[in-house]
Design a protein around this nucleic acid. Structure first.
Length: 572
RNA sequence: CGGGGCGUAGCGCAGUUUGGUUUAGCGCGCGUGCCUUGGGAGCACGAGGUCCCCGGUUCAAAUCCGGGCGCCCCGACCA
């Protein structure tokens, strides 16, 4: 491709609206342009990167025997009503009516469509297992789209759905996809971790998220510094620390006056005590009934854990009025002592505490030297808090947990029979009995993967494409377009590389060298061939690696061979 | 959905507080010519605007008032 005939509009300045580096660079490097909030066009250069990722995904999906399909973006309300999600999905589901006033939506995901196809076509266990996937546009009307392609409303997603006759088969399907995902992200040269994720109330199922590690990520990743344990914040387990409390004397319970002291922070200052000597009592509404949850003052409650523990559908913080009704005091003075008619659940860490501080269920009062069993009873101890940096690893003996940020690029999920039951997708098994198909679903954000790759591979000058997803592998840069010898040399190399099938971009623009070099760094093509004075004087050109800055001086007639050698090594 | 910010040429911005001295500006980019060619050169000339939209106040509105729309950030939310 000749740059002069290409559509690659680069920007010198950072667009005001772009906050994160990947977004800035994708706009500056002429990859994308915004049409509306969370809705982007891909320009040719950006599309080439997207296609590279698509192709890697296809190869790995096909390798596992998944079959590509292409499902509609516009979907009728009926199948969503059947699955129950027409009601449940909320405003993220963009709905509209056609000319006959029939209800439709733009597909945010495709479980309904695929289940509809499979229930109609699959009748026998002989047709299973089956794995169907597509790479296609999704639309989710996000409340707040942000960070360019990171959280768009319209975005490209690879979604796969597996169908199996039994648990064993479903587990294998899941593992196949897990393995495929690892290969895909490895091939994209991403530093990622597969983390355990919460599955919600479906039960018995499990799920992993594939997180690309990046400071700008929206998700929190909890990982062990020693073993391979990793989970997202919702799911991350905490190991019980055994604390010796035997022999510590219980002091006498004491009520203290604490005017306007409502938070742990306030208490810390007011009593000059440490947060880990306090117990936070939080009132939750769990499917409509109140529950008190106790965690140590320096810990945060994890509502998802509470929800799973109680097998509840909805867990939310109680409002001011409810708290008053139950505790007799405003928010900020809640404590477990004297609470009646309410289940009390405490985090394991509370179990090892003696003589701690809690709210007194009375305005401007707290209690000191509170003790378990003597002053109140806990109905259940459980792991209900969020993991913290430095916590013991729940899996290995010596590890400590570390907290990092990540970008979720993929998610594998065992669905079980949720959709097959809702929509009646059954098959006749070998034993002659009708059974529900066991499903799994597996998604990858294609555009988000590209953005994540940039987030992880750039420097102050621009993008540094990993070879496997680079829009072009080689950029030829003739320094002076008015020097016919340089132009001819560049042209010769360009033709040779083209003939060899190398993906090459020739910067034949009549720009000054400085501008060309800046653009070259910005768009980040992994190899740059500089055709300059050396080509005229010694018949040599420079091959520069964008990533390392390393430069090789190579005779013009050896360039093509050298490039081929580098590419075959890099692309394996 | 709560809080904050922004909207002036393709991009980045000044001007708005205190209405008129601005014929609406600056830098970059864009076009033409000269000159220059190893890290975003220089000179000259030039094109390019519904100052987000609608309404109001006023002799006079980019500027003040009311309403609307759009975009960005924080939070909540996110099968």
């Amino acid at each position: 491709m000749r740059w002069s005939r290409y559509f690659l509009p680069t920007l010198r300045e950072v667009p005001a609206e772009a906050e994160v580096i990947s977004h800035q660079l994708m706009v500056r490097a002429g990859m994308i342009r915004k049409l509306a909030a969370g809705i982007y066009s891909y320009l040719p250069f950006g599309l080439r990167a997207l296609k590279k990722v698509r192709e890697i995904i296809r190869e790995e999906m096909n390798r596992k025997g998944a079959l590509e399909v292409y499902l509609p973006v516009v979907q009728p309300a009926e199948i969503w009503q059947e699955s129950g999600r027409w009601q449940l999905y909320g405003k993220e589901l963009l709905r509209f009516k056609d000319r006959h006033a029939r209800d439709f939506c733009l597909g945010p995901t495709h479980e309904e469509v695929i289940t509809d196809i499979v229930r109609k076509e699959v009748k026998s266990y002989r047709q299973l297992p089956l794995n169907l996937y597509q790479i296609q546009t999704k639309f989710r009307d996000e409340v707040r789209p942000r960070f360019g392609l990171m959280r768009g409303r319209e975005f490209e997603m690879k979604d796969a759905y597996s169908f199996d006759k039994d648990e064993e088969g479903a587990n294998k399907s899941y593992q196949d996809m897990y393995d495929a995902y690892c290969r895909i992200f490895e091939r994209c040269d991403l530093n990622f971790r597969a983390v355990e994720a919460d599955t919600g109330p479906i039960g018995g199922s499990y799920s992993h998220e594939f997180m690309v590690l990046a400071d700008t990520g929206e998700d929190i990743v909890v990982g062990c510094d020693t073993c391979s344990y990793a989970a997202n914040m919702e799911k991350a387990e905490v190991r019980r620390e055994s604390i010796e409390t035997q022999g510590v004397e219980m002091k006498e319970l004491e009520k203290i006056y604490t005017p306007q002291v409502k938070t742990i922070q306030d208490l810390t200052t007011f009593l000059s005590a440490k947060p880990d000597q306090m117990v936070k009592t939080l009132i939750f509404q769990v499917d409509g009934r109140p529950v008190a949850a106790l965690v140590r003052g320096d810990h945060e409650i994890n509502p998802v854990k509470l929800k799973n523990l109680l097998g509840a559908d909805v867990v939310e913080m109680a409002d001011e009025e409810t708290v008053r009704r139950i505790t007799g005091a405003p928010i900020g003075f809640t404590g477990p002592v004297g609470l009646k008619g309410i289940e009390i659940i405490a985090d394991f860490a509370v179990q090892g505490m003696v003589n701690f501080i809690t709210g007194a269920n009375e305005v401007d009062r707290h209690l000191k030297n509170v003790n378990l069993n003597r002053d109140f009873k806990v109905d259940r101890f459980a792991d209900i808090r969020q993991a913290m940096e430095g916590d013991l690893c729940p899996r290995c003996e010596t590890g400590r947990l570390k907290i990092t940020r990540g970008i979720e690029v993929g998610h594998v999920f065992k669905l079980g029979t949720k959709y097959s039951k809702a929509m009646g997708a059954t098959f006749l098994d070998a034993d002659g009995k009708e059974k529900y198909i066991i499903m799994g679903c597996y998604g990858i954000g294609v555009g988000r993967t590209v953005a994540a790759a940039i987030e992880q591979n750039h420097d102050e000058n621009g993008i540094i494409w990993p070879f496997p997803i680079a829009p072009f592998h080689v950029l030829i840069l003739p320094v002076n377009m008015t020097d016919s010898r340089m132009v001819e040399t560049a042209e010769k190399i360009y033709q040779e590389l083209l003939a060899e099938g190398v993906e090459v971009l020739l910067d034949d623009r009549d720009e000054r060298p400085g501008a060309k070099f800046k653009d070259a760094d910005l768009i980040g093509i992994p190899l740059r061939i500089t055709v300059g004075n050396l080509a005229v004087s010694e018949g040599k050109v420079e091959i520069k690696f964008r990533k390392t800055g390393e430069v090789e001086k190579v005779p013009v007639n050896e360039v093509t061979q050298r490039i081929k050698a580098i590419l075959s090594a890099q692309l394996k």
